[in-house]
């Protein structure tokens, strides 16, 4: 009986895993009105998570040609994520604080 339950649980686990494939995630921290990295290189389909460790709000966005996006206001202590599903080199900035610049190269 225990064997059957374990097998069933593992099967469920693999179904869940199959439905939502695990992809790599790169974390970018925002602190003192700066990104903690200036450039990153990721693979197509990977996620970049922007953590706001500042005491003020930020707003991640990109005006790169053919790949514009806006993640909206990110309040202190929150995160915003972006799946980069297109290859290329993209400039990401904080719309509020233009000195915050990040280049994302998606292979």
């Amino acid at each position: 009986m225990k064997t059957k339950i374990l097998a069933c649980a593992m099967a469920t686990l693999f179904v869940v895993a199959g439905a939502a494939p695990v992809t790599a995630e790169v974390v970018i921290n925002q602190k003192a009105k700066k990104f903690d990295k200036k450039k990153i290189e990721i693979k197509k389909g990977e996620t970049v998570k922007f953590v706001n460790s500042d005491s003020i709000s930020h707003n991640i966005h990109s005006r790169s040609a053919g790949y514009k996006f806006d993640l909206g206001v990110s309040k202190p202590g929150t995160t915003a994520s972006k799946v980069f599903d297109k290859a290329g080199k993209f400039k990401v900035r904080c719309a509020i604080h233009p000195k915050m610049k990040l280049t994302v190269k998606v292979n």
């Binding site: 686990l13 869940v16 895993a17 695990v22 995630e25 974390v27 921290n29 998570k49 953590v51 460790s53 500042d54 005491s55 003020i56 202190p76 202590g77 995160t79």
Partner: peptide, 29 residues
């Protein structure tokens, strides 16, 4: 802002495994 050292831990369960992906401390200015 009077955010005094709010510790933020995010725990995400992926395929049955618990993984801490981010811990950030927000200090008050």
């Amino acid at each position: 802002k009077k955010i005094s050292k709010i510790a933020m831990s995010m725990v995400v369960v992926i395929s049955g495994f618990a993984t801490v992906v981010s811990t950030a401390a927000i200090s008050a200015e």
